[in-house]
Design a protein around this nucleic acid. Structure first.
Lengths: 289, 289
DNA sequence: GGCGGAATTCCATTGAATGGCATGCGATCG
DNA sequence: CGATCGCATGCCATTCAATGGAATTCCGCC
């Protein structure tokens, strides 16, 4: 096809007498599926590695450069990766476009956002929405004022379950088996490093279930108060946690808690309406506060 | 390995006399790369196809069921897909997590959101942020009030360049070659279907460039007014468009336009600061209005 | 209860994927 | 300013991961 290709033929087969046969063209011993390799490239990106060169990509994923190049090209072709102004690879717009169809992330957010706006207008600090994924909470949305206090977590980032408002709510309503698994570990409060006894955590979780909100006071990044409430899906199971974070002294938990509960319940109702009937409400079995 | 596997051996090789050899195990004639097939599965999902069964997935992507299953399983394993309560496949949280690192989508949004909040508080209707991808605008963020007028586009969705506020702004500041390509097509206003002459569009684009905003009045979904302004990146090129959409009569363009221009400029300054110095401003060459 | 469609397993076949090597290029160094 | 290094990319013989037709199981429905 190309004109400048004649050179390649000089180094023809030749097959030197004693050279290691099969050195060329060997496939990996425990051949990883292509898809896993492709996704390994994608996961090479992270919060503080938003753009990578081919060589970096190759090193991080432990893949030979030529293979990395071939895969990266396909990903670029498809739009999962893009090259920025400097030619570095970054996560592509098209991947985001597809990912925006994820029901548990953007799908949830779409319904939740107006409710979050309501809370935002009341507090003008931070409003968070998170879901559980494995042993972490994943921050699906965050509204923050210009002047809000320093924040700890970014949208798309992961939060510890045992030392954040949303995390505690999600943990408190997780399956018992999973709770036990977490409670069996040696836990510390995240930024501070203070140890957290499993008994204390168990008590916290019980209180969160009974009061319907989690109240967390932290001193570490800056003195702050977080109040979080569970969001329920169509079949009444907890699918997310909604929270406000304000500077300590900015507002009272006894003021924020009812607002959180009410907003989370309104949101839950909206979610129930999406996948099923809007809860016939046979007589509101329980009502706290 | 497994104990319950003895049954498989009953139907051993056998190789019936006259059966078509090579019917089994044939690969596709124009073998598509695995990665493309995997992404074909992902793109099978769309706005109105948020969840799919295996058979649907197989039909939509035109892939044999067995191949579809194998690929889908790997995607589920990795978290790019999930199975919902009914066992249907949906886009996974983990894909969204990775996609949240896309600089042109979430990266931009992260910086823009507080500015969008400012506009939101002023108008309490819709605030949009879009970037250009190919021949469409892609809606990266949208803030909307509960009581806002009906909306046309969802976050993650695509908008036509030639008949939306954000689209016109992006088109007006695109490379000339690309503009010509679009102008060469037969265009109609999207919801209404009214033809749009290339000369009229060219005039609109020139005006948008000279005034610094796009003003669009539509009657179709509901009478509305959109005002949009360009957002510039580190090297002063237009990277996004910011817009408010309000019901017709809700506000005057002459009131909204300065607010849009100012907010878009403030956002541009924030973006410039991220990747480069905040524009030395050698003497503010031009200043309109 | 048997029919139709979906999900899943099985497996012989083979071409897509692999990675070592070679080349070109630009930056940093001595 | 030539040497050196690292990165991006091209090339291609080798081979095993991927493929899809057939068979089986599962489930819902008439």
């Amino acid at each position: 096809m190309f004109s400048g290709r004649a050179v390649g033929h000089t180094a023809r087969v030749t097959n030197h007498a004693g050279t290691s046969r099969a050195a060329r063209g060997r496939r990996p011993p425990q051949g990883e599926p292509v898809i896993d390799r492709a996704f390994a490239l994608l996961t090479a990106f992270s919060e503080d590695r938003r753009s990578l060169t081919l060589a970096e990509l190759s090193r991080v994923t432990d893949t030979p450069p030529s293979t990395t190049l071939r895969l990266a090209r396909r990903l670029v072709h498809w739009g999962a990766l893009e090259r920025d102004a400097d030619g570095r690879y970054v996560v592509g717009l098209r991947l985001w476009e597809v990912a925006s169809l994820a029901p548990r992330a953007h799908g949830l957010r779409r319904v939740a956002l107006p409710y979050m706006e309501d809370l935002y207008e009341a507090t003008h600090q931070h409003v968070l929405l998170a879901v559980r994924d494995g042993a972490d909470a994943l921050l699906v949305e965050r509204l923050s004022a210009h002047a809000a206090i320093d924040v700890l977590y970014r949208v798309g980032g992961r939060l510890p379950l045992h030392s954040t408002g949303v995390g505690l709510v999600l943990l408190a309503h997780a399956e018992p088996d999973f709770q036990d698994e977490i409670l069996g570990q040696a836990l510390t409060h995240e930024p501070e490093g203070v140890p957290l006894s499993s008994a204390a955590l168990r008590r916290s979780l019980a209180e969160i279930r009974s009061t319907g909100v989690a109240v967390v006071n932290r001193a570490e990044p800056v003195p702050l108060l977080a109040v979080a409430a569970p969001v329920r899906g169509a079949d009444a199971e907890v699918v997310a946690a909604l929270s406000v974070v304000v500077p300590a002294g900015h507002a009272e938990p006894r003021v924020l808690a009812p607002a959180l509960r009410a907003t989370a319940r309104a949101l839950s109702r909206s979610l129930g309406a999406v996948t099923g009937p809007p809860t016939p409400a046979p007589g509101s079995l329980r009502r706290r506060q």
